[in-house]
Design a protein around this nucleic acid. Structure first.
Length: 287
DNA sequence: AAGAGGCCCTGATAGC
DNA sequence: TGCTATCAGGGCCTCT
């Protein structure tokens, strides 16, 4: 599900609901996510107030009143939804998301607030949860991450110097969180299409003009996707159960064999595998 | 040291 | 119907 835009959409809706709310109770039903949920997770969260929900890259950051942080990564299939505590309560509050399609067996964590609970559901368990004890450690946690495309430090000089003499293809670089944070497999293909660059092109062979386009479209694609509420492939929804709309804007992703959407281009969208992950591109207008 | 590849896990879908 | 194979939005680890 989640690349930076989807995580940001979740962050925004979650923040509105749990900011300033106090954690009453925490239940962990399955500690075995990608990494084990830390043994002190329940104790750290209990009785704390949520100061706010932040995000870096694809990580949600719950800021707690005891100055510690709860990091949540949704992996490939993680979702967060809110459910009213008292199921017998007939007051239907439509702003709460509850999907009958989500099997409860994958509800690994429940964080209770006074009137509702926040549920972490993740069938594939590629996601994980971490506790960070203070702000210094939080900074350290992300210190080896590259900038997000939305940051000023993701600029032309940075990209040019990073790509110098790098023999790796550009598609892999967009997925490399040490170079740039927050881009995943869908948006990497979309960014390269708009930049008119073939995914297999070696980074060192990219021109200044190419790098400018990569900078520009990385930011644009992510911001556009956030604006549209993220991309709802499979059944991504924000925590209020609202689907995103950006998937309607996909120009290449999952469009194998279809006509290129660029005006006057006669190209066909191709699918190739790069480092075990599918990449989509136009065989005519991406060079 | 950079870069390629394997692997963690479940579920949906396709093909036989 | 029911088996098996393939594929899925991520990221860490190991090997060369």
């Amino acid at each position: 599900m989640p690349e930076l835009p989807e995580v940001e959409v979740v962050r925004q809706s979650l923040n509105k609901k749990i900011k300033q709310k106090k954690v009453e109770k925490v239940i962990v039903r399955n500690r075995n996510l990608r990494f084990k949920i830390p043994f002190n997770f329940e104790r750290i969260l209990k009785k704390q107030k949520i100061i706010g929900v932040d995000r870096f890259s694809k990580y949600l950051i719950l800021c707690l009143s005891n100055k510690s942080y709860c990091l949540i990564h949704l992996g490939m299939s993680g979702t967060i939804h809110l459910v009213q505590n008292n199921k017998d309560n007939n007051l239907t509050n439509t702003s709460f998301y509850s999907s009958p399609k989500l099997p409860e067996k994958h509800n690994h964590v429940e964080i209770f607030f006074s009137k509702f609970k926040m549920i972490y559901n993740d069938p594939r368990r590629f996601g994980f949860i971490e506790i960070i004890n203070n702000f210094e450690l939080l900074k350290k946690r992300f210190s080896h991450f590259g900038p997000e495309p939305l940051e000023l430090s993701f600029n032309l000089n940075y990209i040019l110097s990073y790509f110098k003499s790098k023999n790796k293809n550009i598609k892999n670089f967009l997925l490399d969180q040490k170079f740039v944070s927050g881009i995943g497999n869908i948006y990497a293909s979309e960014i390269l299409f708009l930049s008119k660059i073939k995914p297999t092109k070696k980074a060192k062979s990219l021109t200044k003009r190419d790098c400018k386009k990569i900078r520009f479209f990385s930011k644009k694609v992510l911001l556009d996707a956030i604006k549209k509420g993220g991309s709802s492939i499979r059944d991504f929804k924000n925590i209020l159960g609202k689907s995103g709309n950006f998937q309607k804007n996909f120009r290449v992703y999952e469009r194998e064999g279809l006509k290129c959407k660029k005006m006057n281009c006669k190209g066909i969208i191709k699918k190739i595998i790069i480092s075990n992950r599918s990449s989509f591109f136009c065989n005519s207008c991406q060079k």
